[in-house]
Simulated assay, not measured.
Amino acid sequence: MYRPKSTVEQWRIFQAVVDHGGYVQAAEALNKSQSSLNHAVAKLQQGLGVALLEVKGRKAYLTPEGEVFLRRSRKLTQGIKELELLADILASGWEPILRLVVEASLPRQPLYQALADFSARSRGCRIHLLEAQPAGCKAVVDKQAADMVFASRAFSSVPSLPLTTTVYVPVCAPSHPLAILDEVSTHELEAELELVLAEGNEPEEGWEGTEQPWVINHLHDTLSLLRRGVGFAWLPQDVVTPLIEARILTRLPVTNQTLRKRFTHLILPRTTPLGPAASLLLTLIRHHYGVPDEHRTDA
């Protein structure tokens, strides 16, 4: 069984002697006796079988081996410091993990911006960001299996916050036959292949589809197929605008068609109060979605 030949305290004393230029100065800084520091470093060197310091007069100098051990030991003591800080953070109630679920068809740029801000203040809290379809979001809410759910519908008796309204527009590849038309009627679309974001055989709830729907589970797959000239799709305007500007996709000029819209609701499935990390993230989400502070989640 392995037995350590050194202690964290010995490495801290060794670093202090180097940082302060000698045993006398380090003893004053650490409020310890010089003899105790001498003993700790001597025992450290003896245990390792390597000379780390060379004393000349009243000053201590690193040996070549000591320079190597100094760099490595700083990582060790910094790691111990971070572990102890993490223990303090968790003891204060700071969550170690936050689980977020986002409905596949919803745009999420403001969420990304909130998470970017959160990362600098996360204090070790990890983020699990998952994508799901509407039925999957409902299952997560029912099971209270996430801290936050971004869905296109709210759920009764579950706290939620309306975040934004998303406009969906019809798009296809520039090479698609529909792209050359000056106007496209809803009747003409009915005969075309439509890529529908859904799961299983479920159509988009409340949206009339075409006679030839392909059900696609992920937005990434939908965009990949569209780029290859496969069908058309109704997608979030914020998502496709850069692709339209880059002429990767084309917006279809559909006549007599009201805009399709979908709301983004932030659902808080858990019955327990938000912890400090979740509360911070919620504040950042409100900020980046432009939700006024006076808007609170509904009980």
Rank of each mutant, 00 (worst) to 15 (best):
G93V: 01
T166L: 10
P276G: 04
V169Y: 03
L243K: 01
A173I: 08
L219E: 10
Y289T: 02
G79V: 08
S175I: 12
A87P: 00
R58N: 14
S92M: 11
Y112I: 13
D142R: 15
H176M: 10
I244T: 07
S35M: 12
S224Q: 14
E245A: 15
Q237C: 09
L193C: 11
E202V: 11
V8N: 05
T164H: 11
Q113Y: 09
D182C: 09
S160Q: 08
L70H: 03
I180E: 10
L129G: 09
I80Y: 14
V230T: 11
E84P: 01
S122D: 11
N217C: 12
I248L: 10
L193Y: 06
L193S: 09
Q212F: 14
L249G: 01
C137Q: 06
A16L: 06
N31G: 14
A60Q: 06
I127F: 02
E245T: 08
K59T: 12
Q46M: 04
L130V: 15
S35C: 02
V254D: 00
T186L: 15
L163A: 12
L86C: 09
A278P: 04
Q25W: 04
H176P: 03
R262F: 02
L48G: 03
R262Y: 02
E204C: 03
G66A: 11
A132M: 08
V169D: 01
L226R: 04
L76R: 13
G229Y: 01
G275F: 01
V196M: 07
L249H: 01
V196Q: 05
L37S: 00
Q45Y: 03
E183S: 14
Q78G: 12
L252K: 00
W234K: 02
C125W: 00
R260E: 03
Q113T: 13
D293S: 15
L223I: 03
H128W: 09
Q144L: 04
N31D: 15
L280M: 09
L259R: 11
L52A: 02
P242D: 03
V18T: 02
L281T: 04
L266I: 10
T222A: 14
Q15I: 13
W234V: 01
T166M: 06
A246P: 05
T165C: 14
G57T: 11
T264W: 00
D88M: 12
V50R: 11
V102W: 09
L48Y: 13
G136K: 08
V17T: 07
R123K: 15
A51R: 15
S92E: 04
H288Y: 06
A60E: 04
L259V: 10
S185L: 03
Y168S: 06
R296D: 06
A16S: 15
R74K: 13
D142T: 14
E183H: 12
P170R: 04
P269M: 01
S105P: 07
A233K: 00
S36P: 01
A154H: 10
L280E: 04
I127D: 04
V291T: 08
L243Y: 08
V101F: 07
I244N: 00
G66D: 05
C172D: 05
